[in-house]
Design a protein around this nucleic acid. Structure first.
Lengths: 150, 150
DNA sequence: TAGTAAATGCAACTCTGTTGCAAATCCACA
DNA sequence: TGTGGATTTGCAACAGAGTTGCATTTACTA
């Protein structure tokens, strides 16, 4: 890892180490983009947009918009993060801290469009799929108002 | 209603009458766009995209892209249809045939991106929203493979 | 049927995300 | 520790969905 990649904030340094470890552990290539972006996502509890990532990374490292998209796509492909699209038609990304499950739940604020992942939820569904259809994953989206917008 | 609006297909004529009746009943303005587009959506069981609507309307009436968007937004606002965004980040629209409920369920095919509404479903959720958050509606998305793509 | 508020069409725009290609970088192997 | 070659990155240009402003047309009220 190059020196220029390192943040001076000890918390973030840890996350960068963690990100690096995660990627190395899978035998994948280590690059500044992957480390910074994954570390940033590891520090977030919400699902964040491309813009928010760019904003948070300001001052640490400047990446081209395209690089950001490509790294995010790569992280998603490799299962380090997952992405979701909400009512504003913008991709949002979140680190897969918890082991991958078949169920995701998200909260979308109808006013400020913020997206929060709901981790602890259990749902029992009783829906009938049309004949021949096969379910692979289930996503639950709760729409409403967040604490700031109520 | 102008003559030029009328379709020669009796089934579609009925739906156009139904669409007109729905709009008139609410005391809203009757226009060719609203009637054609709502009638088209009433004839569909799936949630359809802007493109699909344009395609289906070919030969009957040609609307500007912008008009289509505006009519769809209006229909959504007034509660005649609902719209949803799936993984391809494209709006899809569906008529609210059933009385409006707080719960929607959709099936998204991971291969062909088709979206089907699941009407008959019941879900009991047990999720904890963060403090101060308020839920307004719940959307369930089942992702998998449709009968053609299995 | 005339007047007016609303709907429509057109052009130009924004915003998110993608593609092609040349330059820079990572890392396995000598 | 260098170095060759595959990967990644940055830049420019593009694509597609949806939006805005404005002039024209249309639906409906009085």
């Amino acid at each position: 890892m190059q020196l220029c990649c390192k943040s001076t904030n000890p918390f973030l340094v840890d996350l960068q180490k963690k990100a690096e470890e995660m990627i190395r552990h899978r035998g994948e290539r280590i690059t500044p983009g992957r480390i910074h972006i994954l570390a940033m996502l590891l520090s977030e509890r919400r699902a964040v947009t491309h813009h928010e990532i760019e904003e948070r990374l300001k001052g640490k490292h400047r990446f081209d918009r395209v690089t950001l998209y490509r790294v995010l796509e790569w992280l998603n492909e490799k299962g380090f993060v997952h992405r979701l699209v909400s009512a504003d038609r913008v991709w949002r990304f979140r680190a897969n801290i918890h082991e991958h499950s078949q169920q995701h739940a998200h909260f979308e604020c109808l006013r400020c469009t913020k997206v929060v992942c709901l981790n602890d939820f259990e749902t029992t569904h009783d829906f009938a799929l049309p004949a021949g259809y096969r379910s692979r994953e289930v996503e639950l989206t709760v729409k409403g108002l967040c604490a700031e917008c109520v």
